[in-house]
Simulated assay, not measured.
Amino acid sequence: MGFESYAQIGIGTTDPQETLHVAGTTATIRIEGLDMVNNPQNNGTGKLTPVYVDKKGNFTLTKPGYTAGNGYVLPLNFLVFTPNFIPNNPAGHPAPYDDYGTIINSDASTTTVTDLIHSVEIDVPTSSMVEVKYAMSLYFSETDLFNPPATEPSDGKTRVIQSYFLIDFNSDGLSGTELTTQYGFKGQYYASGPGGTKGYPYMNSQGYVNMTPGHHTLYFYGVVNDPPGTFTSIGFGGANEYLKIRLFN
């Protein structure tokens, strides 16, 4: 003959008021299946992860609306989500010239110049596909932004501006292959008319790459292309920009 028994369990109390009652003003609960070691959806050290309750009452880190199959992959988390990832004034100019961003020049003797804009370090907790989305403002000048004020181009000549990023896997120095593998490559052109133009045009792009767990570094580069005999000075990221790095498994 079988029977069922119902009881309330108290931790820190001899008078439990619920099926499980954890008493104490500083009481905590730990579920090791949801920690960063055992659950890849955990956001990791220094970040909080929302906990959801499914239709059966189970605790889960899986976001509502997730449907498995059909090629759908669940985003783990945003490793980086910042609206201003490029320093606004690395040249140290006084106001009002403190919003040029990282400056790259192509003088009259060059037609293509490539230089580093900024680098970002990330820690990937588990083998994942990583999505990197970024946007940055561009400040155009036909005089050197290192020596303000700027002079908006008015010569009618076309400039082509490009950006991309490299990945130093495990942050141990860029290898030959890593130096030649460009991600998120994007370009746009700018042609001025008489009188030039003021304001910030924007450029955005994204790239995807599979990464293993570890500490990695992303290097963002800018490329300035202009006609022979033309001086072009570009400030990358002096106004609004963003960087979003998201993991999928």
Rank of each mutant, 00 (worst) to 15 (best):
G92F: 15
G176F: 10
I103P: 15
P149A: 04
Q182I: 05
T102Y: 04
T126E: 08
T126C: 12
V160M: 10
T143K: 13
Q182W: 10
Y139S: 08
D107S: 11
L179H: 04
D172E: 15
D98T: 07
E152I: 11
N170S: 14
Y183E: 00
V120Y: 08
Y100H: 12
G176L: 11
V130G: 02
S128R: 00
P90S: 03
D99M: 05
P96K: 05
S154I: 06
Y100T: 06
L174D: 09
G101E: 04
T151W: 00
T158F: 00
L179W: 09
I104T: 12
S141M: 02
M136D: 01
D115I: 09
P125L: 01
D98M: 10
L179T: 03
I122T: 14
T177K: 02
S106T: 10
M136I: 06
P153L: 00
Q182L: 12
N105A: 09
Y139M: 08
E121W: 07
S119N: 15
A135P: 00
P94G: 08
T143N: 14
S154C: 03
Y134V: 02
S128F: 01
T143Y: 02
Y164N: 04
Y139K: 12
Y134E: 01
P90M: 08
S171I: 00
D115L: 04
S141L: 02
D107F: 10
V160A: 08
P96L: 07
L138C: 08
E121C: 04
P153K: 05
K157M: 08
N105I: 12
I122W: 07
T181Q: 08
D172S: 14
F146V: 01
S109A: 14
A95G: 07
S175C: 09
T143D: 10
K157W: 04
I104M: 07
I117V: 12
D172A: 14
T151Q: 09
D155A: 09
S154D: 13
G156L: 03
E121K: 14
Y183L: 04
Y164K: 04
M129H: 04
V160H: 13
Q162A: 14
F146R: 13
D115C: 08
H118K: 12
R159H: 14
V130F: 06
N105F: 10
T151V: 10
T126S: 11
M136A: 04
S127C: 00
D99C: 10
P149M: 05
G156I: 02
P148V: 00
H93D: 01
T110I: 00
E131I: 06
G156Q: 03
T110F: 12
S119A: 11
F146K: 15
P149N: 10
F165C: 07
D168M: 02
Y139I: 03
A135T: 02
T158H: 01
E178H: 15
S137F: 02
T158I: 00
H118N: 15
T102H: 00
F169A: 11
S106W: 05
Y134P: 01
N147A: 08
N105V: 13
Y100G: 11
G92S: 13
F165V: 05
Y164P: 00
A108Y: 13
D172N: 14
L138T: 01
V130N: 03
F165W: 11
I104A: 06
I103D: 13
V124L: 12
Y100I: 05
D107I: 03
T114H: 09
P125Q: 00
Y164C: 06
G156N: 04
V132W: 06
S137H: 03
D172G: 14
P125C: 00
T126I: 12
F165I: 05
P96R: 06
L166P: 01
